[in-house]
């Protein structure tokens, strides 16, 4: 099933409005899930569930939001920042994300800024076109 980017975006937007209780116009391409839209940890699971249902795909644990495992590994984290190895690992795991801002200062506190509306749309686009 091939879908245009706009179609995917509209459906992702509906899911985020529903899951996060935000208004339509708050969901922009660059909006971050945590910072701008107020997502909490359980919301990430809720979003994954709803994406799976809406797009009829399977999203393995850690694929869409894979940061968690990485953060507990000392090879990847040093003094509150991602190491070069950690950054490489995260980039590999998250092909759907734009790292250009984050890599200037890979502070763990800023990792949630990587999860934008656009990153979800890109992820779904990759999944549905591959299927």
């Amino acid at each position: 099933m091939s879908m245009s980017r706009d179609e995917i975006y509209e459906k992702v937007k509906d899911i985020l409005v529903d899951a996060l209780g935000v208004d339509d116009d708050e969901v922009t391409n660059q909006a971050t899930l945590v910072g701008d839209l107020g997502a909490e940890s359980i919301d990430f699971l809720d979003i994954v569930f709803q994406l799976e249902k809406q797009f009829e795909i399977k999203i393995p644990r850690e694929e869409l939001f894979p940061a968690e495992n990485l953060l507990n590994d000392s090879e990847y984290v040093d003094n509150g920042k991602l190491t070069a190895a950690g950054l490489a690992r995260l980039k590999e795991a998250m092909g759907h994300v734009d790292f250009s801002e984050f890599e200037k200062d890979p502070d763990l506190n800023k990792i949630t800024d990587l999860f934008t509306v656009d990153s979800i749309v890109q992820f779904i686009e990759g999944k549905t076109n591959a299927a």
Partner: peptide
Amino acid sequence: MENITAEAAT
């Protein structure tokens, strides 16, 4: 039950 996985259920 709508959905149940290792981590959560709706």
